[in-house]
Design a binder for these strands. Structure first.
Lengths: 304, 304
DNA sequence: TATGTTCAATTAGTATTTCCGATTATGTTA
DNA sequence: TAACATAATCGGAAATACTAATTGAACATA
């Protein structure tokens, strides 16, 4: 059996891939450019294949190179996790944990969550990143985040997940508009263009439309908002109705408005909240515990 | 960030875990005993925790040590896969592939499979291990096998799987016994102790009993057989009836006997065949292709 | 109780590997 | 064309990994 590539050389390759420049990559690794250069050559020799095409002056990762980068990333992340795990003496709820969360969940969950974690697991150092689903999945893949809180269903891309619970959708509108409506609200009672949604980057839109069986798109106003708070503002101004998740309502997003929350039609008018992590992780017990903490804070916990 | 442990030291740890003896482990690694000894100490220092308890003369892995072994195994397997992947230039259907299969599938599948693979992927070097489900799962976890063909349902223990297809159960008995029976056969038409099964190590027994809704255990003869072939012998001798999977019948296991195969009662009287692999693998495309090859050979392919 | 054996740790010396700084080769920009 | 940027190469220094031999402790046995 030929010799295994060294983790060091694999990390050089990752740095090179990230910086696309030998000097900057070398700097990032705290080694000289020559070291990194020969490290890469070494790696190519050991792996018996070309990882980057040298094009006099510049270079380009080969297809194989990209593949190796991908696999190397996984190996290095695992090793880092092993190191961290051992150094923290297996104390699973201590040390750094990098969590990503989407904007339609974060403001209504993370306040309570950090409070709870600070109380129950004071040595856990939670860092939080708020971003869209696709961006978060990329960061998870790159090892820049450890775990995500997303709304399901979502293409897991090979990641694993815990389903944490359900979060019902409510149809929110000004009280004056709501008077003559019966629950669950049938959408054909509403005027055209009267439902406002978030811009399409937010998965909430798609989830709400399908969960609430809102097939008739003529009801949807083409103007899109960028946050739940602005949706609430628009509804409060009497522009129309919108879907707001229960957890946002529970955390008082409608306080100080004249809005009412009605039950929309749709068999299962809700979204699921899930915790997503890399299939290759070895911090499953940590994530499981975190999942339990989060599930308790959801409107309808569902953790198996 | 502290320095990552080296793969070399991790492999020393694995060898030590396997051989439970510094000398033999060192031999297995082709290094001297002192090298291995200091490698382990090195590792303990880097990880900042005790991995083995030295008890003058002998030693014992600590709980943390066992954990680290587990994670190290995964890292090393991934790295080996990376090396193999690169060296084979990404030719996914070439080189060694170590497959495990249970005894109630192997004889009726692997002949055709090897024939097919030899034709379609002549450079694939398939090695086969036949063993019980639990043993195979252990070998998969240890990285000694790459992929398993098992009957489902089974506790995957965190592994991933493709469902390949269904394999119906048939109730097999001597033609003279079958004459007065209507299909699907109701078990209360059969005398007590008239159904013979495999010994309990074989998952076939449990699968058949539950799939065929054979609740009344008084029908089951307490004598158990060790292979499908002996079950067939016993049935042919007129001792009683037994469950035989369709794929065994298709491959002629009843040839030369006076046995007939009847439809047993039970909503879904069949077992599923699945391909199992480590969640941390990076040979998914290979396994997917293999899954397709195998599915084609099953009585009822079902691969999504 | 003495003697030999087994096993892991230690030590000291050697071999190997890794790394850096300087230099070179090549292309790009001013 | 000069100045600059980039990656490869080279030679020597520093770090490391490795071995053989030794030590010491535990155990078996005569």
């Amino acid at each position: 059996m030929s010799k295994l590539p060294s983790l060091k050389n694999l990390s050089y390759l990752l740095a090179l891939h990230q910086h696309q420049n030998f000097n900057r990559a070398a700097q990032a690794c705290n080694v000289s450019q020559s070291t990194l250069s020969s490290g890469i050559q070494n790696l190519e020799e050991q792996l018996g294949c070309q990882l980057i095409e040298r094009d006099h002056k510049s270079f380009l990762f080969t297809g194989m190179g990209e593949e190796v980068v991908e696999q190397a990333r996984q190996i290095l992340t695992s090793t880092e996790e092993l190191l961290y795990f051992a150094q923290s003496q297996g104390k699973i709820m201590e040390g750094p944990l990098r969590l990503g969360c989407i904007p339609t969940i974060a403001p209504f969950l993370l306040g309570d969550l950090t409070k709870k974690l600070k109380a129950d697991h004071p040595k856990l150092q939670l860092s939080i990143r708020e971003d869209t689903t696709v961006n978060l999945l990329n960061l998870l893949r790159n090892g820049e985040l450890d775990v995500l809180v997303l709304a399901l269903p979502v293409d897991l891309q090979g990641n694993q997940s815990y389903v944490l619970g359900r979060d019902p959708f409510k149809l929110v509108m000004h009280s004056s508009l709501a008077e003559k409506l019966a629950e669950p609200v049938q959408y054909n009672q509403l005027p055209d263009n009267s439902i406002f949604l978030l811009e399409k980057e937010h998965c909430l839109t798609g989830h709400a439309v399908s969960a609430c069986e809102l097939a008739d798109s003529s009801k949807i106003n083409p103007f899109t908002a960028t946050s739940l708070h602005s949706l609430v503002q628009m509804a409060d101004a009497g522009l129309g109705a919108t879907f707001i998740p229960q957890m946002a309502i529970d955390r008082g997003i409608l306080n100080g408005t004249d809005l009412v929350a009605l039950q929309p039609s749709g068999q299962q008018a809700s979204r699921e909240i899930g915790l997503i992590y890399r299939p290759t992780t070895n911090r499953r017990t940590t994530f499981r515990k975190l999942a339990e903490c989060i599930a308790e804070l959801l409107p309808e916990p569902l953790l198996k």
